[in-house]
Nucleic acid binder design. Structure first.
Lengths: 127, 127
DNA sequence: CAGAATCCGTTAGGATACTG
DNA sequence: CAGTATCCTAACGGATTCTG
């Protein structure tokens, strides 16, 4: 195998692996939900309050998707009234901690970089 | 500050940092483009060939967005005919290497996890 | 509280064709 | 080669209302 073929193969492998990760974790909300989950928020409305801006509809859909991928466990405690539903992180969810850490670190640096320079790329204010 | 307030503050900080990262790197293509860039692909059509499935329109738009964020440098070599345009990673781009590595590792594990179990979450085939 | 149902606007991004 | 220009649609996601 020649040099550029090696390069191509490595790039393709990297590309495909990252692609898979993005496929599961991508989108606006999934990682945020997982962070809240790992932080200790487990109830539906609690999650909605913690994750600013998410609607019940979207939260519900995202939780289902995450459950399909084994990243959330939905637990119904039927022995209580009213019924309590909890969304719990799984063992598998904890394997994401490194991703979250690394991404968070970079995001922090990036914010400092742009606010430090006084550059505003796009408007993002809320109020 | 009480315990749950600390938790809330930490979670919010983490949330906001990751949010910032997603804002810049999110979407279907940005990270893939950066990987190709870091691997050594610099020309427009070269990138399009390497990143399977991306259209010229989208590639063009994404490159502009990345350039705005300082993650790509567009270099025109006017001393040649025809004019050669190169998209080069910056120093700042290299700060993403860890993210790419971690994300790639996880994606690889995840793929093994699902293919190993024979689970097909959603259809994703191309042909 | 924990959602489902409905409606509806925005947008990411695909397909194709064209240009200097 | 290095893009632009158009057109178009599927998916994302916001707002609101309703329910057991």
């Amino acid at each position: 195998m020649e040099k550029h073929e090696v390069k191509a193969a490595k790039c393709a492998a990297q590309l495909s692996a990252v692609e898979d990760a993005i496929y599961v974790l991508g989108g606006k909300w999934k990682l945020r939900i997982l962070i809240a989950l790992l932080t200790g928020y487990h109830r539906f409305n609690e999650l909605q309050r913690t994750i600013k801006g998410i609607s019940a509809r979207v939260l519900s859909a995202e939780l289902k998707s995450l459950e399909l991928n084994g990243l959330v466990k939905r637990v119904v405690k039927a022995d209580q009234t009213p019924v309590v539903v909890e969304y719990l992180p799984t063992e598998y969810t904890r394997s994401l901690k490194q991703i979250i850490t690394v991404l968070g670190d970079w995001g922090l640096k990036h914010k400092k970089r742009i606010t430090g320079k006084g550059v505003k790329i796009m408007e993002k204010e809320v109020e």
